[in-house]
Each structure stands twice: as C-alpha cells, then as structure tokens.
C-alpha cells in the first residue's frame, strides 16, 4: 500500500465509529461534557419511605441549618443522602445506615414522637447522644481528609459525612455559602481576609 492509497482508505478503516469516539468503556452518560450535565441532585431516587425522608430532612437541617446563608435543606442535601445511601454505599454500609436510622427513630418514639416532629432541642439531644456513643471512633481523627470512606463508621458519622459533603459540594453550598469562581483569571497569594469571609470552594477532588 502506498501513502496515497493509505490516506484514501484510512478514513474508512480507522474512523468508522464516530458516534463513540470516546471508547467502548464509556457509557453515553459518561461521554457528555460535565459542565452541561444535569446536577447530580436532579437524578431520580426513591429509596426511603416518607417517614425516613422526613427524618433525614430533620437531621440534615439540625446539622447544617439555614442561617443568613442557605442550609442543608435549601441545598437539597436530603436528596443527596438518599441518592448516596441508595446508589453509593455498599450493602454492609447501607445496613449500618438503615439500622442506625431505625434506632434513632425508636429513640424518638420513646420521647413521644417521630424524630422530625420533635423540637430542635430534643433532636439535638438525640444526635448528641449518638455522637457521644460514637465516642472516639477513628472517623473523628484529626486530619484524616485523605482517607477512604470508613466502612465501619457509625450511623451518626455516616449521616454527618454525607450531609457536610453533600452540602459544600452542592451548587448552592459551593457558590452561595462558600465562594466559587470557575475562571479566577489571576493568582494573588496575599489577599486580606476578613474574619467573617467564607473559604473558596476548591473542589472535592484535588
């Protein structure tokens, strides 16, 4: 084959699969520009029953309430929790989560109502009880930012991690509570910091 013949046939031979230029290993969903993708929170999920859903809303709100800035419920963190429990946790982690939620619901009923219907003082008392029981689990170790998700983390740690992560990595959390610029255009390594100012959002993946 000479060069000219080669060029004539190469477009057929090597470029016959234009619809899937990015490879057999990627699904259609993985071949889109993520900037144009729908937010993760807009995915469908139906995993919790309505009581569980109400209680998760109440827990997320207790962890990160609305203040002068949006809170966890404004950022749709409960939906993030449901998506993650349904799709991301492993079976044992999910069991741990559901058992923990179940136990919290039982303790709430012993206080006379479902968790979501209790007052914030009672809700916090229950959550603080769980945190005190979790005690010195390694989940609380200082500086374990680079760790993998801890599969044996107790329910209270699971829900806190999902709530905090889901909140600050959400569009609302990153852009309205933290600060975010996708193209900052310059670098300045010494900018005065006001004591009330929020951190930049700098990404869940470094």
């Amino acid at each position: 084959m000479n060069r000219r013949q080669f060029l004539e046939c190469s477009s057929i031979f090597f470029c016959g699969l234009t619809a899937s230029q990015l490879g057999v290993s990627l699904t259609a969903e993985q071949r889109v520009h993520l900037t144009t993708a729908d937010n993760y929170l807009n995915r469908d999920v139906s995993f919790f029953d309505s009581q569980q859903r109400s209680d998760i809303v109440a827990i997320a709100d207790a962890i990160i309430p609305r203040t002068e800035t949006p809170g966890a419920v404004d950022a749709r963190v409960p939906r993030y929790v449901e998506l993650m429990v349904s799709n991301w946790l492993t079976d044992p982690e999910r069991k741990l989560f559901m058992a923990g939620l179940d136990q919290l619901q039982q303790r709430s009923r012993q206080r006379g109502d479902s968790f979501s219907e209790l007052g914030i003082t009672e809700q916090l008392a229950l959550l603080e009880q769980l945190e005190s029981e979790a005690g010195d689990h390694s989940w609380y170790d200082f500086g374990n930012i680079r760790r993998e998700y801890l599969s044996d983390a107790p329910f209270i740690c699971q829900i806190k991690e999902l709530t905090v992560w889901g909140f600050f990595s959400s569009e609302v959390g990153a852009t309205q509570v933290l600060r975010y610029k996708h193209m900052p255009m310059y670098f300045d390594g010494d900018v005065p910091l006001d004591s009330q100012e929020s951190a930049w959002y700098s990404g869940a993946i470094e």
């Binding site: 937010n39 991301w88 990153a174 869940a204």
Partner: peptide
C-alpha cells in the same frame, strides 16, 4: 463543578 459529577465528587 463537583455538583455536576456523579456522587458530587
């Protein structure tokens, strides 16, 4: 932004 990514990162 990470909110576009599966599992938000």
């Amino acid at each position: 932004g990470d909110w576009k990514l599966p599992y938000q990162g």
